[in-house]
Design a protein around this nucleic acid. Structure first.
Lengths: 245, 245
DNA sequence: CCTTGACAGATAATCGATTATTTGGATAGT
DNA sequence: ACTATCCAAATAATCGATTATCTGTCAAGG
């Protein structure tokens, strides 16, 4: 119990907006690896929303012992993708219309706030990171026929949005936004394999990013809000189609 | 992996704004009990901010095995009170001026938004809960000489703030606010044993609550914002006094 | 004098087995 | 039929021991 250094929610392993991006590098322990694998399984829809996670089955499936399994699941709880109850075990967080709408609302509220703060506080390096993330995203094709392109695109899309707000200098806020993005991405991965025809998402991203580096707060924030809102509306329709309330 | 029911971040154990309040009832497993004990130890300052948590020592101190200890610590990570790194173990989240300022800023943003939503959506039961929480809080004395009164007051204070925003119908938002409140309470517990002389906190709470049930959005939100801001400023001064940057 | 590498002690991660709790179904009583 | 109670199987929680990893120290080499 010796005092040391570091700050709450300070950029740890996964948080550092290092040059190469946000996606975790050091998957050291079995627990960490499991967390990643489970996260992917949930976000991709492989593990059905709302389903109970049987520890014994999972243990066999992943060929690990209970301890690291619990370790991994514990992290997904922090991510909001898994829920837990004493003596009842773990289950994949359910999806619902209300949940999606809350996620959308909170993203509009907080991601936009974080963007504004980034524009206020971000330095030139932040600007550069934004432009790079934009470029990489727009250069990546999204072909519904090839799942690996979808995954790649999702990864870059996530990184773009996180980079946009990475200049805000508020680790806790970034943590919250990352969480909301996680939750949101699951809906998109499961329900939206291609963009609705009446949108030009690349252009939307460009407008947001250009506005951001130009420090045109009202414009860029408004674009981002609309971008998030449209995605929400889109997803809502798809949920309705599949009869999810 | 059988699908079932329930919603993401839906009011589970600790979330339910039931009649008796927010403070957890069912401390079933050793892991849960540990989480509570550790949380209290951290928020009260007993476990020094920034200090490393030696698993072996902790195991002996609490007289438990590793598994539930990790379980408990995992939950505190969700609460933002503990940090973790692969193969490096756990440590109590550090405190800093920047961290405090972020917490204050985000509370002003999030908690005020949640209050506005509560006023927009809350029903009569919510109003009743607010008035009850206010009454209980204002009837409880806070005597710096008797620590148990401080703890009790903190508990009721926390409950008052959570009740205020409990009508917003947004479980994830509530989760975020609870987290921020946790983090904030640690600063107050550690640095502020009594109210600064120039404030009448009871009256501030009354004004917020009265405005809330009267659905006077602008007034109530403004009062809450000021309330949070004053507390932040106050804490900042105390931190500065103790040479924390 | 500084750097590098190897060792030992400390600490974290994982495992397999054991214990506790819950759940669903069968049975007895109303 | 309906409810309550008790059992057994399923599942979660915990433990103690083992294995893997890290950290600091010290010696050899530059």
């Amino acid at each position: 119990m010796v005092p040391d250094d570091d700050g709450a929610f300070a950029p740890t392993t996964e948080d550092a907006p290092s040059s190469s991006g946000f996606l975790d590098d050091g998957k050291n322990t079995i627990g960490s690896q499991l967390a990643s694998r489970l996260r992917e399984a949930i976000i991709s829809g492989e593990l059905q929303a709302g389903s109970k996670i049987n520890l014994e089955k999972a243990r066999k499936t992943f060929n690990v012992s209970l301890s690291p399994l619990r370790e991994g699941l514990a992290r997904l709880i922090s991510d909001g993708l898994v829920e837990f109850e004493d003596n009842r075990g773990y289950r994949v967080s359910a999806i619902s219309l209300a949940n999606l709408e809350e996620i959308t609302t909170l993203r509009e509220e907080f991601e936009v706030f974080a963007l504004r703060e980034s524009m206020r506080l971000g330095d030139v390096e932040w600007e550069g990171n934004v432009m790079r993330a934009l470029h990489r995203l727009n250069r990546t094709e999204r072909d519904a026929a090839r799942p690996e392109t979808l995954e790649r695109w999702e990864e870059l899309h996530r990184e773009f949005h996180l980079t946009l707000i990475s200049g805000c200098g508020k680790p806790i806020l970034l943590h919250f936004c990352r969480l909301l993005l996680n939750l949101n991405d699951r809906y998109r991965r499961v329900f939206l394999t291609r963009t609705s025809g009446d949108r030009n998402v690349s252009q939307e991203h460009s407008e947001i990013a250009q506005g951001a580096v130009a420090r045109d707060m009202d414009y860029s924030c408004d674009m981002l809000r609309q971008h998030i809102h449209r995605t929400g509306t889109n997803l809502r329709d798809h949920l309705a189609t599949k009869g999810i309330s």
